[in-house]
């Protein structure tokens, strides 16, 4: 089951943050964030204060999953871009490296054209990073180092019970 687990290391995390920070500045967006296809938030950049980021991540993933289902129904591989237009804010959603969802929220200080342009560039940079992460995980798994480094290798029944006593 755990062979497809996602692990994020400090080095790649910092690189991802740099890329999405740049994307946010260059596209004049309010918020940029990355979610995996299961709805787990990977990184976010921008004005998060008045926003429920966890819900946003989960609903985005649900949205993408439902749209993927629709695509398959009509014989498409995927709809790689989703765009939601609101009165004030708009959401641009795209898939990176087939497994990660890149979300850009922007208002009239930017435009769809600009966002699409900048997203394209950032996507290719992010793809490189995620391919590196996957390689790293596979390499560590093969060399057996992953087991040693797992923070859960030493977990006890008491640790688990303690989680539920609060």
């Amino acid at each position: 089951m755990t062979t497809s687990d996602m692990i994020m290391y400090e080095e790649e995390y910092q690189r991802i943050k740099t890329i999405i920070t740049k994307l946010r500045t260059e596209s004049n967006a309010k918020l940029v964030f990355l979610v995996d296809k299961n709805g787990q938030q990977i990184a976010a950049q921008g004005d998060l204060e008045n926003l429920d980021a966890t819900s946003l991540a989960s609903l985005t993933a649900g949205n993408v999953a439902a749209t993927d289902g629709l695509a398959k129904l009509i014989g498409e591989k995927e709809f790689s871009i989703l765009f939601h237009e609101g009165e004030r804010d708009n959401i641009h959603i795209s898939i990176v490296a087939q497994r990660v969802i890149l979300v850009v929220i922007f208002d009239n200080r930017s435009s769809l054209g600009l966002v699409r342009l900048r997203v394209k560039k950032a996507s290719s940079e992010l793809t490189d990073v995620f391919e590196r992460v996957v390689k790293k995980i596979n390499h560590e798994r093969e060399s057996g180092r992953l087991d040693v480094e797992s923070p859960f290798a030493e977990i006890t029944d008491d640790d688990i019970d303690n989680l539920f006593t609060n």
Partner: peptide, 15 residues
Amino acid sequence: MTFINYASREINCKI
């Protein structure tokens, strides 16, 4: 798919 984030020291599981 468990998501282990070493950078922010978080682990997320889906039930």
